[in-house]
Design a protein around this nucleic acid. Sequence first.
DNA 1: AGGCGGTGTCAAGCTTCTTTCAGGCTTCGT
DNA 2: ACGAAGCCTGAAAGAAGCTTGACACCGCCT
Lengths: 221, 221
Amino acid sequence: MTAGGERVLVVDDDPPLQRMLARTLTAEGFSVAVAADGGAALAEAERSLPDVIVLDVAMPGMDGLAVCRRLRAKGMTTPVLMLTARDAVPDRVRGLQAGADDYLVKPFATEELIARIRALTRRGAPATERLQFADLSLDLSTRTATRGGRSIELSGRESALLELLLRDPRSVLTRERALEQVWDDAAVPNVVDRYVGRLRRKLGDPPLIHTVRGVGFMLRS
Amino acid sequence: MTAGGERVLVVDDDPPLQRMLARTLTAEGFSVAVAADGGAALAEAERSLPDVIVLDVAMPGMDGLAVCRRLRAKGMTTPVLMLTARDAVPDRVRGLQAGADDYLVKPFATEELIARIRALTRRGAPATERLQFADLSLDLSTRTATRGGRSIELSGRESALLELLLRDPRSVLTRERALEQVWDDAAVPNVVDRYVGRLRRKLGDPPLIHTVRGVGFMLRS
DNA sequence: AGGCGGTGTCAAGCTTCTTTCAGGCTTCGT
DNA sequence: ACGAAGCCTGAAAGAAGCTTGACACCGCCT
Protein backbone atom coordinates (compact mmCIF):
# COMPACT_ATOMS: atom_id res chain seq x y z
CA MET A 1 0.00 0.00 0.00
CA THR A 2 3.00 2.24 0.54
CA ALA A 3 5.12 3.87 -2.16
CA GLY A 4 7.06 0.78 -3.22
CA GLY A 5 4.06 -1.55 -3.52
CA GLU A 6 3.86 -4.99 -1.98
CA ARG A 7 6.62 -7.43 -2.77
CA VAL A 8 5.59 -10.67 -4.43
CA LEU A 9 7.72 -13.75 -4.86
CA VAL A 10 6.70 -15.82 -7.86
CA VAL A 11 7.80 -19.45 -7.84
CA ASP A 12 7.38 -21.30 -11.12
CA ASP A 13 9.53 -23.43 -13.38
CA ASP A 14 7.99 -22.30 -16.62
CA PRO A 15 9.85 -19.28 -18.11
CA PRO A 16 7.00 -17.96 -20.29
CA LEU A 17 4.64 -18.00 -17.35
CA GLN A 18 7.30 -16.38 -15.17
CA ARG A 19 7.61 -13.54 -17.64
CA MET A 20 3.90 -13.13 -17.98
CA LEU A 21 3.38 -12.98 -14.24
CA ALA A 22 6.29 -10.65 -13.65
CA ARG A 23 5.04 -8.24 -16.28
CA THR A 24 1.43 -8.28 -15.16
CA LEU A 25 2.21 -7.85 -11.49
CA THR A 26 4.77 -5.16 -12.06
CA ALA A 27 2.23 -3.28 -14.14
CA GLU A 28 -0.14 -3.47 -11.19
CA GLY A 29 2.38 -1.85 -8.92
CA PHE A 30 3.83 -4.89 -7.19
CA SER A 31 7.52 -5.41 -6.97
CA VAL A 32 8.30 -8.90 -8.17
CA ALA A 33 11.01 -11.48 -7.52
CA VAL A 34 11.13 -14.84 -9.28
CA ALA A 35 12.42 -18.24 -8.22
CA ALA A 36 12.49 -21.22 -10.58
CA ASP A 37 12.51 -24.13 -8.14
CA GLY A 38 11.73 -25.07 -4.57
CA GLY A 39 15.19 -24.64 -3.17
CA ALA A 40 15.63 -21.20 -4.67
CA ALA A 41 12.17 -20.27 -3.43
CA LEU A 42 12.98 -21.13 0.17
CA ALA A 43 16.25 -19.26 0.06
CA GLU A 44 14.73 -16.21 -1.53
CA ALA A 45 11.74 -16.21 0.79
CA GLU A 46 14.00 -16.19 3.82
CA ARG A 47 16.27 -13.58 2.37
CA SER A 48 13.79 -11.05 1.12
CA LEU A 49 10.72 -11.74 3.27
CA PRO A 50 8.15 -11.00 0.57
CA ASP A 51 4.60 -9.96 1.38
CA VAL A 52 3.03 -12.74 -0.66
CA ILE A 53 4.30 -15.87 -2.35
CA VAL A 54 2.70 -17.18 -5.53
CA LEU A 55 3.62 -20.81 -5.71
CA ASP A 56 3.16 -23.33 -8.50
CA VAL A 57 2.21 -26.77 -7.22
CA ALA A 58 3.73 -28.69 -10.09
CA MET A 59 7.49 -28.33 -10.19
CA PRO A 60 10.38 -30.70 -10.68
CA GLY A 61 12.18 -31.57 -7.44
CA MET A 62 10.51 -30.12 -4.40
CA ASP A 63 6.90 -29.43 -5.33
CA GLY A 64 4.77 -26.54 -4.18
CA LEU A 65 3.18 -28.42 -1.31
CA ALA A 66 6.57 -29.33 0.09
CA VAL A 67 7.86 -25.79 -0.27
CA CYS A 68 4.85 -24.51 1.57
CA ARG A 69 5.22 -27.00 4.40
CA ARG A 70 8.88 -26.15 4.75
CA LEU A 71 8.11 -22.48 4.91
CA ARG A 72 5.56 -23.05 7.66
CA ALA A 73 7.92 -25.34 9.49
CA LYS A 74 10.47 -22.56 9.54
CA GLY A 75 7.90 -20.38 11.16
CA MET A 76 7.19 -18.19 8.18
CA THR A 77 3.60 -17.12 7.90
CA THR A 78 3.89 -15.22 4.67
CA PRO A 79 0.61 -15.66 2.77
CA VAL A 80 0.89 -18.27 0.04
CA LEU A 81 -1.26 -18.39 -3.08
CA MET A 82 -1.01 -21.79 -4.69
CA LEU A 83 -1.32 -22.26 -8.45
CA THR A 84 -2.28 -25.57 -9.93
CA ALA A 85 -3.30 -27.06 -13.20
CA ARG A 86 -5.36 -29.70 -11.51
CA ASP A 87 -8.83 -29.01 -10.29
CA ALA A 88 -9.51 -32.17 -8.32
CA VAL A 89 -10.82 -31.38 -4.87
CA PRO A 90 -8.42 -33.62 -2.94
CA ASP A 91 -5.54 -31.59 -4.32
CA ARG A 92 -7.13 -28.34 -3.38
CA VAL A 93 -7.68 -29.62 0.10
CA ARG A 94 -4.12 -30.81 0.38
CA GLY A 95 -2.90 -27.42 -0.69
CA LEU A 96 -4.79 -25.66 2.03
CA GLN A 97 -3.70 -28.22 4.57
CA ALA A 98 -0.08 -27.72 3.64
CA GLY A 99 -0.55 -24.20 4.90
CA ALA A 100 -1.48 -22.32 1.74
CA ASP A 101 -3.84 -19.43 2.21
CA ASP A 102 -5.49 -19.50 -1.16
CA TYR A 103 -5.69 -21.50 -4.29
CA LEU A 104 -6.08 -20.69 -7.95
CA VAL A 105 -6.62 -23.09 -10.82
CA LYS A 106 -4.80 -22.65 -14.11
CA PRO A 107 -5.76 -21.26 -16.49
CA PHE A 108 -6.86 -18.18 -14.60
CA ALA A 109 -7.84 -14.63 -15.41
CA THR A 110 -5.10 -12.23 -14.45
CA GLU A 111 -7.71 -9.95 -12.91
CA GLU A 112 -8.58 -12.70 -10.55
CA LEU A 113 -5.00 -13.41 -9.65
CA ILE A 114 -4.53 -9.77 -8.81
CA ALA A 115 -7.72 -9.56 -6.78
CA ARG A 116 -6.62 -12.57 -4.76
CA ILE A 117 -3.15 -11.27 -4.17
CA ARG A 118 -4.65 -8.02 -2.98
CA ALA A 119 -6.97 -9.92 -0.66
CA LEU A 120 -4.00 -11.74 0.82
CA THR A 121 -1.83 -8.70 1.33
CA ARG A 122 -4.71 -6.78 2.79
CA ARG A 123 -5.39 -9.28 5.49
CA GLY A 124 -2.00 -10.81 6.04
CA ALA A 125 0.07 -9.67 8.93
CA PRO A 126 2.53 -7.36 7.19
CA ALA A 127 5.43 -9.80 7.37
CA THR A 128 6.46 -8.68 10.81
CA GLU A 129 9.94 -9.64 11.73
CA ARG A 130 9.63 -9.18 15.39
CA LEU A 131 7.04 -10.44 17.81
CA GLN A 132 6.85 -9.34 21.40
CA PHE A 133 5.14 -10.17 24.59
CA ALA A 134 6.05 -9.02 28.07
CA ASP A 135 9.85 -9.12 28.33
CA LEU A 136 10.09 -11.71 25.58
CA SER A 137 10.66 -10.97 21.94
CA LEU A 138 11.36 -13.08 18.93
CA ASP A 139 13.16 -12.15 15.76
CA LEU A 140 11.85 -14.47 13.10
CA SER A 141 14.52 -13.83 10.55
CA THR A 142 17.34 -14.87 12.86
CA ARG A 143 15.27 -17.19 15.05
CA THR A 144 16.62 -15.52 18.10
CA ALA A 145 14.51 -14.85 21.13
CA THR A 146 15.37 -12.25 23.73
CA ARG A 147 14.30 -12.35 27.29
CA GLY A 148 15.30 -9.64 29.70
CA GLY A 149 18.28 -8.67 27.61
CA ARG A 150 19.58 -12.23 27.35
CA SER A 151 19.47 -13.64 23.87
CA ILE A 152 18.45 -17.19 23.13
CA GLU A 153 19.06 -19.17 19.97
CA LEU A 154 16.15 -21.29 18.83
CA SER A 155 15.92 -24.17 16.41
CA GLY A 156 13.41 -24.09 13.55
CA ARG A 157 10.68 -25.93 15.33
CA GLU A 158 11.21 -24.12 18.57
CA SER A 159 10.92 -20.80 16.84
CA ALA A 160 7.86 -21.80 14.84
CA LEU A 161 6.10 -22.94 17.97
CA LEU A 162 7.03 -19.87 19.93
CA GLU A 163 5.85 -17.73 17.07
CA LEU A 164 2.48 -19.39 17.16
CA LEU A 165 2.22 -18.67 20.86
CA LEU A 166 3.35 -15.10 20.40
CA ARG A 167 0.86 -14.39 17.64
CA ASP A 168 -1.93 -14.93 20.07
CA PRO A 169 -0.83 -14.32 23.61
CA ARG A 170 -3.34 -15.02 26.38
CA SER A 171 -5.25 -17.33 24.15
CA VAL A 172 -4.94 -21.06 24.15
CA LEU A 173 -2.93 -22.86 21.51
CA THR A 174 -4.31 -26.36 21.11
CA ARG A 175 -2.05 -29.29 20.32
CA GLU A 176 -4.03 -29.87 17.18
CA ARG A 177 -3.45 -26.41 15.91
CA ALA A 178 0.21 -26.56 16.77
CA LEU A 179 0.59 -29.89 14.99
CA GLU A 180 -1.24 -28.57 12.00
CA GLN A 181 0.79 -25.40 11.77
CA VAL A 182 4.26 -26.51 12.78
CA TRP A 183 4.41 -30.20 12.01
CA ASP A 184 3.26 -32.26 9.08
CA ASP A 185 0.15 -34.03 10.11
CA ALA A 186 1.91 -37.32 10.79
CA ALA A 187 3.50 -36.52 14.13
CA VAL A 188 2.41 -37.83 17.50
CA PRO A 189 0.78 -35.15 19.67
CA ASN A 190 3.35 -35.58 22.38
CA VAL A 191 5.92 -33.85 20.23
CA VAL A 192 4.24 -30.58 21.08
CA ASP A 193 4.70 -31.20 24.79
CA ARG A 194 8.31 -32.03 24.17
CA TYR A 195 8.92 -28.75 22.43
CA VAL A 196 6.98 -26.76 24.94
CA GLY A 197 9.29 -28.28 27.50
CA ARG A 198 12.37 -27.19 25.62
CA LEU A 199 11.05 -23.69 25.19
CA ARG A 200 10.24 -23.43 28.86
CA ARG A 201 13.73 -24.43 29.79
CA LYS A 202 15.30 -22.06 27.33
CA LEU A 203 13.11 -19.13 28.22
CA GLY A 204 13.78 -19.42 31.92
CA ASP A 205 11.89 -17.91 34.85
CA PRO A 206 9.38 -16.66 35.58
CA PRO A 207 7.46 -19.06 33.36
CA LEU A 208 5.52 -17.56 30.47
CA ILE A 209 4.12 -20.68 28.89
CA HIS A 210 1.25 -22.04 30.89
CA THR A 211 -0.54 -25.34 30.55
CA VAL A 212 -4.28 -25.38 30.14
CA ARG A 213 -4.99 -28.93 31.09
CA GLY A 214 -6.91 -30.90 28.52
CA VAL A 215 -6.69 -28.10 25.99
CA GLY A 216 -3.24 -26.82 25.22
CA PHE A 217 -0.79 -24.10 26.12
CA MET A 218 -0.92 -20.39 26.55
CA LEU A 219 1.41 -17.42 26.83
CA ARG A 220 0.74 -15.26 29.85
CA SER A 221 2.74 -13.39 32.41
CA MET B 1 -12.51 -31.15 17.84
CA THR B 2 -10.94 -28.41 19.91
CA ALA B 3 -12.54 -27.70 23.21
CA GLY B 4 -13.96 -24.31 22.38
CA GLY B 5 -14.64 -24.64 18.65
CA GLU B 6 -14.60 -21.63 16.40
CA ARG B 7 -17.91 -19.92 15.86
CA VAL B 8 -19.23 -19.74 12.33
CA LEU B 9 -22.10 -17.62 11.11
CA VAL B 10 -23.83 -19.14 8.10
CA VAL B 11 -25.88 -16.76 5.99
CA ASP B 12 -28.12 -18.40 3.44
CA ASP B 13 -31.76 -18.20 2.45
CA ASP B 14 -32.14 -21.84 1.50
CA PRO B 15 -33.29 -23.94 4.48
CA PRO B 16 -32.02 -27.32 3.23
CA LEU B 17 -28.59 -25.89 2.62
CA GLN B 18 -28.70 -24.18 6.00
CA ARG B 19 -29.39 -27.48 7.67
CA MET B 20 -26.71 -29.28 5.73
CA LEU B 21 -24.11 -26.67 6.60
CA ALA B 22 -25.12 -26.49 10.21
CA ARG B 23 -24.88 -30.22 10.62
CA THR B 24 -21.60 -30.63 8.80
CA LEU B 25 -19.88 -27.80 10.59
CA THR B 26 -21.18 -28.81 13.97
CA ALA B 27 -19.88 -32.30 13.39
CA GLU B 28 -16.47 -30.78 12.69
CA GLY B 29 -16.49 -29.03 16.01
CA PHE B 30 -17.54 -25.57 14.98
CA SER B 31 -20.31 -23.85 16.75
CA VAL B 32 -22.79 -22.59 14.21
CA ALA B 33 -25.29 -19.76 14.02
CA VAL B 34 -27.56 -19.25 11.02
CA ALA B 35 -29.07 -16.13 9.51
CA ALA B 36 -31.54 -16.26 6.64
CA ASP B 37 -31.12 -12.82 5.11
CA GLY B 38 -28.78 -9.88 4.93
CA GLY B 39 -30.38 -7.84 7.68
CA ALA B 40 -30.36 -10.70 10.12
CA ALA B 41 -26.79 -11.47 9.15
CA LEU B 42 -25.54 -7.99 9.98
CA ALA B 43 -27.37 -7.96 13.28
CA GLU B 44 -26.13 -11.37 14.28
CA ALA B 45 -22.57 -10.64 13.20
CA GLU B 46 -22.46 -7.57 15.39
CA ARG B 47 -24.10 -9.27 18.29
CA SER B 48 -22.12 -12.48 18.43
CA LEU B 49 -18.83 -11.56 16.74
CA PRO B 50 -18.28 -14.91 15.00
CA ASP B 51 -14.86 -16.10 13.96
CA VAL B 52 -15.85 -16.62 10.34
CA ILE B 53 -18.86 -15.73 8.22
CA VAL B 54 -19.99 -18.02 5.41
CA LEU B 55 -22.04 -15.85 3.10
CA ASP B 56 -24.22 -16.80 0.15
CA VAL B 57 -23.97 -14.28 -2.68
CA ALA B 58 -27.42 -14.89 -4.06
CA MET B 59 -30.11 -13.83 -1.63
CA PRO B 60 -33.36 -11.89 -1.92
CA GLY B 61 -33.09 -8.34 -0.61
CA MET B 62 -29.59 -7.43 0.38
CA ASP B 63 -27.23 -9.78 -1.43
CA GLY B 64 -23.98 -11.20 -0.15
CA LEU B 65 -21.80 -8.57 -1.75
CA ALA B 66 -23.80 -5.82 -0.10
CA VAL B 67 -23.68 -7.55 3.27
CA CYS B 68 -19.94 -7.90 2.99
CA ARG B 69 -19.45 -4.27 2.05
CA ARG B 70 -21.62 -3.15 4.95
CA LEU B 71 -19.62 -5.28 7.36
CA ARG B 72 -16.37 -3.80 6.14
CA ALA B 73 -17.82 -0.32 6.25
CA LYS B 74 -18.60 -0.85 9.90
CA GLY B 75 -14.99 -1.72 10.47
CA MET B 76 -15.51 -5.40 11.03
CA THR B 77 -12.63 -7.50 9.81
CA THR B 78 -14.17 -10.89 10.45
CA PRO B 79 -13.05 -13.22 7.68
CA VAL B 80 -15.76 -13.81 5.08
CA LEU B 81 -16.06 -16.87 2.86
CA MET B 82 -18.39 -16.18 -0.05
CA LEU B 83 -20.55 -18.90 -1.59
CA THR B 84 -21.91 -18.58 -5.09
CA ALA B 85 -23.62 -20.65 -7.72
CA ARG B 86 -22.03 -18.67 -10.51
CA ASP B 87 -18.56 -19.40 -11.66
CA ALA B 88 -17.95 -16.47 -13.96
CA VAL B 89 -14.69 -14.76 -13.18
CA PRO B 90 -16.08 -11.22 -13.00
CA ASP B 91 -18.28 -12.32 -10.11
CA ARG B 92 -15.42 -13.85 -8.27
CA VAL B 93 -13.43 -10.71 -8.65
CA ARG B 94 -16.31 -8.60 -7.45
CA GLY B 95 -16.65 -10.79 -4.41
CA LEU B 96 -13.07 -10.34 -3.40
CA GLN B 97 -13.27 -6.63 -4.09
CA ALA B 98 -16.29 -6.33 -1.84
CA GLY B 99 -13.98 -7.42 0.96
CA ALA B 100 -14.48 -11.17 1.03
CA ASP B 101 -11.44 -13.17 2.05
CA ASP B 102 -12.21 -16.28 0.09
CA TYR B 103 -14.62 -17.64 -2.40
CA LEU B 104 -16.19 -21.01 -3.04
CA VAL B 105 -18.32 -22.09 -5.98
CA LYS B 106 -21.40 -24.22 -5.52
CA PRO B 107 -21.58 -27.11 -5.65
CA PHE B 108 -18.59 -27.70 -3.43
CA ALA B 109 -17.09 -30.60 -1.53
CA THR B 110 -17.71 -30.24 2.18
CA GLU B 111 -14.10 -31.19 2.84
CA GLU B 112 -13.02 -28.20 0.91
CA LEU B 113 -15.39 -25.89 2.68
CA ILE B 114 -13.99 -27.08 5.96
CA ALA B 115 -10.39 -26.74 4.86
CA ARG B 116 -11.05 -23.18 3.77
CA ILE B 117 -12.84 -22.23 6.92
CA ARG B 118 -9.92 -23.61 8.88
CA ALA B 119 -7.49 -21.60 6.79
CA LEU B 120 -9.48 -18.47 7.57
CA THR B 121 -9.90 -19.06 11.28
CA ARG B 122 -6.18 -19.57 11.60
CA ARG B 123 -5.56 -15.89 11.06
CA GLY B 124 -8.38 -13.86 12.51
CA ALA B 125 -8.19 -12.44 15.98
CA PRO B 126 -10.06 -14.97 18.08
CA ALA B 127 -13.14 -13.22 19.36
CA THR B 128 -12.95 -14.88 22.75
CA GLU B 129 -16.14 -15.83 24.44
CA ARG B 130 -16.65 -14.11 27.69
CA LEU B 131 -19.44 -14.35 30.22
CA GLN B 132 -20.04 -11.75 32.88
CA PHE B 133 -22.03 -11.09 35.97
CA ALA B 134 -21.46 -8.38 38.52
CA ASP B 135 -17.70 -8.15 39.11
CA LEU B 136 -17.17 -11.71 37.91
CA SER B 137 -16.26 -12.71 34.40
CA LEU B 138 -15.24 -15.95 32.78
CA ASP B 139 -13.19 -16.60 29.69
CA LEU B 140 -14.21 -20.02 28.44
CA SER B 141 -11.33 -20.53 26.09
CA THR B 142 -8.66 -20.11 28.73
CA ARG B 143 -10.82 -21.27 31.62
CA THR B 144 -9.86 -18.24 33.58
CA ALA B 145 -12.28 -16.32 35.76
CA THR B 146 -11.72 -12.76 36.89
CA ARG B 147 -13.12 -11.25 40.02
CA GLY B 148 -12.41 -7.66 40.87
CA GLY B 149 -9.34 -7.67 38.67
CA ARG B 150 -7.91 -10.80 40.28
CA SER B 151 -7.61 -13.70 37.90
CA ILE B 152 -8.49 -17.22 38.89
CA GLU B 153 -7.57 -20.42 37.09
CA LEU B 154 -10.33 -22.99 36.90
CA SER B 155 -10.29 -26.68 36.08
CA GLY B 156 -12.50 -28.10 33.35
CA ARG B 157 -15.40 -29.05 35.55
CA GLU B 158 -15.21 -25.91 37.61
CA SER B 159 -15.34 -23.80 34.53
CA ALA B 160 -18.20 -25.76 33.01
CA LEU B 161 -20.25 -25.42 36.14
CA LEU B 162 -19.57 -21.72 36.51
CA GLU B 163 -20.48 -21.27 32.88
CA LEU B 164 -23.84 -22.84 33.51
CA LEU B 165 -24.46 -20.50 36.41
CA LEU B 166 -23.35 -17.48 34.41
CA ARG B 167 -25.55 -18.29 31.46
CA ASP B 168 -28.57 -17.80 33.65
CA PRO B 169 -27.83 -15.59 36.58
CA ARG B 170 -30.56 -15.00 39.16
CA SER B 171 -32.25 -18.19 38.14
CA VAL B 172 -31.91 -21.46 39.95
CA LEU B 173 -29.67 -24.21 38.62
CA THR B 174 -30.95 -27.55 39.82
CA ARG B 175 -28.61 -30.40 40.64
CA GLU B 176 -30.30 -32.50 37.98
CA ARG B 177 -29.61 -29.96 35.30
CA ALA B 178 -26.04 -29.49 36.40
CA LEU B 179 -25.45 -33.24 36.40
CA GLU B 180 -26.99 -33.54 33.01
CA GLN B 181 -25.01 -30.70 31.49
CA VAL B 182 -21.65 -31.07 33.13
CA TRP B 183 -21.43 -34.67 34.21
CA ASP B 184 -22.30 -37.92 32.53
CA ASP B 185 -25.43 -39.28 33.98
CA ALA B 186 -23.66 -41.77 36.23
CA ALA B 187 -22.40 -39.43 38.91
CA VAL B 188 -23.70 -39.07 42.41
CA PRO B 189 -25.55 -35.78 42.98
CA ASN B 190 -23.16 -34.78 45.70
CA VAL B 191 -20.45 -33.97 43.14
CA VAL B 192 -22.30 -30.80 42.34
CA ASP B 193 -22.13 -29.67 45.96
CA ARG B 194 -18.46 -30.50 46.01
CA TYR B 195 -17.77 -28.32 43.02
CA VAL B 196 -19.96 -25.51 44.19
CA GLY B 197 -17.85 -25.58 47.31
CA ARG B 198 -14.65 -25.28 45.35
CA LEU B 199 -15.98 -22.46 43.27
CA ARG B 200 -17.11 -20.56 46.32
CA ARG B 201 -13.68 -20.85 47.84
CA LYS B 202 -11.92 -19.81 44.67
CA LEU B 203 -14.22 -16.90 43.93
CA GLY B 204 -13.86 -15.41 47.39
CA ASP B 205 -16.03 -12.83 49.11
CA PRO B 206 -18.63 -11.52 48.99
CA PRO B 207 -20.33 -14.78 48.02
CA LEU B 208 -22.05 -14.89 44.65
CA ILE B 209 -23.28 -18.47 44.61
CA HIS B 210 -26.28 -18.93 46.84
CA THR B 211 -27.96 -22.11 47.93
CA VAL B 212 -31.66 -22.55 47.35
CA ARG B 213 -32.45 -25.25 49.78
CA GLY B 214 -34.12 -28.29 48.32
CA VAL B 215 -33.69 -27.02 44.78
CA GLY B 216 -30.22 -26.03 43.72
CA PHE B 217 -27.93 -23.04 43.39
CA MET B 218 -28.14 -19.56 42.01
CA LEU B 219 -25.88 -16.67 41.08
CA ARG B 220 -26.80 -13.38 42.72
CA SER B 221 -25.01 -10.45 44.28
C1' DA C 1 33.78 -42.47 9.46
C1' DG C 2 32.62 -39.94 13.37
C1' DG C 3 30.70 -36.14 15.82
C1' DC C 4 26.92 -32.99 16.28
C1' DG C 5 22.71 -30.58 16.57
C1' DG C 6 18.01 -31.02 15.65
C1' DT C 7 14.09 -33.99 15.70
C1' DG C 8 10.62 -37.61 16.86
C1' DT C 9 9.16 -41.60 20.06
C1' DC C 10 8.33 -43.94 24.24
C1' DA C 11 7.48 -44.93 28.90
C1' DA C 12 7.92 -44.05 33.66
C1' DG C 13 7.16 -40.65 37.14
C1' DC C 14 4.69 -36.88 38.63
C1' DT C 15 1.06 -33.41 39.17
C1' DT C 16 -3.50 -32.14 39.05
C1' DC C 17 -8.31 -33.12 38.70
C1' DT C 18 -12.31 -35.84 39.77
C1' DT C 19 -15.16 -38.57 42.47
C1' DT C 20 -16.69 -40.77 46.51
C1' DC C 21 -17.63 -41.33 51.34
C1' DA C 22 -18.67 -40.10 55.84
C1' DG C 23 -19.35 -37.19 59.56
C1' DG C 24 -20.34 -32.50 61.14
C1' DC C 25 -23.18 -28.51 60.44
C1' DT C 26 -27.27 -25.70 59.19
C1' DT C 27 -31.99 -25.06 58.30
C1' DC C 28 -36.78 -26.12 58.63
C1' DG C 29 -41.05 -27.93 60.43
C1' DT C 30 -43.48 -29.17 64.40
C1' DA D 1 -36.40 -27.16 71.58
C1' DC D 2 -36.05 -31.34 68.90
C1' DG D 3 -35.66 -34.32 65.09
C1' DA D 4 -35.25 -34.81 60.29
C1' DA D 5 -33.70 -33.42 56.04
C1' DG D 6 -30.50 -31.32 53.47
C1' DC D 7 -26.04 -29.04 52.84
C1' DC D 8 -20.98 -28.61 53.35
C1' DT D 9 -16.24 -30.17 53.43
C1' DG D 10 -11.82 -32.98 54.77
C1' DA D 11 -9.54 -36.99 53.42
C1' DA D 12 -8.22 -40.25 50.23
C1' DA D 13 -8.42 -43.31 46.27
C1' DG D 14 -8.39 -43.39 41.45
C1' DA D 15 -8.11 -41.42 36.81
C1' DA D 16 -6.44 -38.41 33.52
C1' DG D 17 -3.12 -35.67 31.62
C1' DC D 18 1.48 -33.48 31.63
C1' DT D 19 6.50 -33.65 31.93
C1' DT D 20 10.97 -35.41 31.17
C1' DG D 21 14.99 -38.45 30.67
C1' DA D 22 16.67 -41.85 27.59
C1' DC D 23 17.26 -43.19 23.13
C1' DA D 24 17.05 -43.79 17.98
C1' DC D 25 17.23 -41.43 13.73
C1' DC D 26 18.48 -38.11 10.30
C1' DG D 27 21.09 -34.81 7.63
C1' DC D 28 25.16 -32.06 7.81
C1' DC D 29 29.87 -30.81 8.55
C1' DT D 30 34.73 -32.08 9.47
